[in-house]
């Protein structure tokens, strides 16, 4: 599948934003008001900013962005519509939570309620994003059972690294619970991706050119319907640089490991170096997530390629 940059930016940026938002919601629910007005405000702005940038970016690949509001109507059948509805719905408790959270001495029960609702809606939105892909029977790599877990885990892992960096920048790098959550999430992200990659590498072909054309047996293509590439080939084509897949997977792994080491270093060293390490960890986790997402698209093969010369998918 063609990896559209707007969709990659959207899923990674808003994924990190929703992960951070969910963690902030849970922090507020368990710890009450933010320890510091500026830490609370900046964290909420980063979370909502990333989500908003992601959502806006996702409209760039639309043919008619001005009609995007129509996408809220078909939540009964469409995961894309459900995602849109939840994405917008999340803003309401998130903004209320943010306002209450940065105020000192807010009502703890109200804050906890809003924090938990925000976290649930944030994760539900990420699950809907993943389901847009996981529900397509035409792309087998996306039907793998790890697709939804990977989206959720990467959202939490990148969100956790972000929160870790924010606490470090505001001079609170030594929070044990957050350090543990960040490290566990990064490890889980790597493991989830390994399971996914092994899974799709071992998928046995399900359909052949003989099935697609109904002619059965050995079928070969001898003539294309058109002389230059058409939309089906450029969007669903199988020529996209899969040859770099191995190297790119190693880059994802290396980024996650490096982010993990940097988080550990920031956690262990503390002091003035901690924010630098923590921010570097954000950059590396971000690169890892973007490369992972690019591969998620580029490596996925579509059933329609059977009509265009691919022997089996």
């Amino acid at each position: 599948m063609h990896p559209a940059y707007s969709v990659i930016v959207f899923t990674t940026a808003s994924g990190a934003g929703y992960g951070l938002l969910a963690l902030l919601g849970l922090t507020g629910a368990s710890h009450g008001s933010a320890s510091d007005f500026w830490f609370g405000s900046v964290s909420m702005l980063v979370a909502l900013g990333l989500i908003t940038v992601g959502l806006l970016s996702s409209t760039f690949h639309l043919g008619h962005p001005e009609r995007a509001w129509r996408a809220f109507s078909q939540w009964r059948s469409s995961w894309l519509s459900r995602e849109g509805v939840l994405a917008v719905a999340t803003y309401i408790p998130a903004c209320l939570f943010g306002l209450l959270w940065v105020m000192p001495d807010s009502n703890e029960i109200l804050l906890a309620g809003l924090g938990i609702v925000t976290a649930i809606l944030a994760m539900a939105t990420v699950i809907c994003t993943a389901m847009i892909y996981a529900s397509l029977t035409t792309i087998r790599a996306w039907r793998h059972w790890m697709v939804v877990p990977v989206y959720v885990i990467f959202s939490i892992a990148t969100g956790a690294v972000l929160l870790f960096a924010l606490t470090s920048v505001f001079g609170r790098s030594g929070i044990p619970a957050l350090g543990i959550i960040t490290i566990v999430a990064l490890v889980l992200a790597g493991v989830a991706k390994l399971v996914y990659w092994t899974g799709i590498d071992n998928m046995k072909p399900l359909y052949t050119m003989g099935d697609a054309t109904g002619l059965g047996g050995d079928v070969r293509q001898w003539e294309l319907p058109h002389t230059s590439e058409n939309y089906i080939q450029s969007e669903m084509g199988f020529k996209v640089a899969r040859r770099h897949a191995r190297k790119l997977r190693m880059i994802v792994g290396a980024c996650l490991v490096a982010a993990l080491v940097l988080v550990l270093a920031a956690f262990g060293l503390g002091g003035e170096a901690a924010p630098v390490f923590a921010v570097l960890a954000v950059v590396l986790a971000g690169i890892g997530a973007i490369v992972e997402r690019w591969l998620f698209f580029a490596q996925a093969r579509h059933v329609v390629s059977l009509f265009y010369g691919e022997q089996s998918v």
């Binding site: 047996g217 070969r220 293509q221 001898w222 003539e223 319907p225």
Partner: peptide, 8 residues
């Protein structure tokens, strides 16, 4: 779109 295939 009109494809051309070969069998057998």
């Amino acid at each position: 779109r009109i494809h051309g295939y070969e069998t057998g």
